[in-house]
């Protein structure tokens, strides 16, 4: 799906309208590119560059600076687990390790079924609800491994039911 797809037209236009300079829309447009391609693909970078009238190098530079843009493909669910100090004081590191073990992945890895990519992140401003994570940037708070396992299996079952368990 390219950024030129009609479905993005209005959103792109509304972002461009916010700023006196097209270049400022690079961040919102990178989010749209990520949504369109599933990651910030070279093609996405190129398209954002054209729309924002920037050199693609500058777009790539912005994409690389921020942790919420992914320059590589990932699983369907990105799990960003906060292991920063307040969460860690409340067991987040253990939680993260167990989660990794359960999914059979290392830091930054994607589970074999291609569904889950896990990464640790810094403080997500939910320290009073540790352990917590963001799944595809949606908060999931006050977690424990039991809840997590159930959730993971639900996702798997969901896809099983939809008959597309493999690769996302």
């Amino acid at each position: 799906m390219s950024l030129h797809d009609p479905r993005y037209k209005a959103r792109i236009a509304s972002h461009l309208a916010k700023y006196p300079d097209k270049r400022s829309a690079v961040m919102p447009l990178l989010y749209i590119a990520q949504e369109a391609y599933g990651w910030v693909s070279p093609k996405g970078v190129q398209e954002v560059a054209e729309i924002c009238e920037m050199d693609p190098t500058q777009v790539k530079s912005i994409a690389g600076f921020y942790t919420m843009y992914s320059e590589r493909t990932k699983g369907r669910y990105w799990l960003h687990v906060c292991t920063d100090l307040p969460c860690a004081l409340n067991g987040a590191e253990t939680f993260y390790r167990e989660l990794q073990d359960y999914l059979g992945v290392e830091e930054g890895g994607t589970s074999e079924d291609g569904l889950f990519t896990v990464e640790h992140v810094m403080c997500l401003a939910a320290c009073d609800k540790a352990p917590m994570l963001q799944c595809n940037f949606r908060y999931m708070e006050s977690l424990d491994m039991e809840k997590m396992k159930a959730w993971i299996e639900e996702r798997r079952a969901e896809l099983e039911a939809a008959g597309q368990g493999q690769g996302a």
Partner: peptide
């Protein structure tokens, strides 16, 4: 010709070109 830039950040900051 702004065809050079930094990629990543902190100690990972590196010069790239994507032209």
């Amino acid at each position: 010709d702004d065809v050079l830039a930094f990629h990543e950040r902190g100690r990972s900051l590196q010069i790239i070109t994507n032209s």
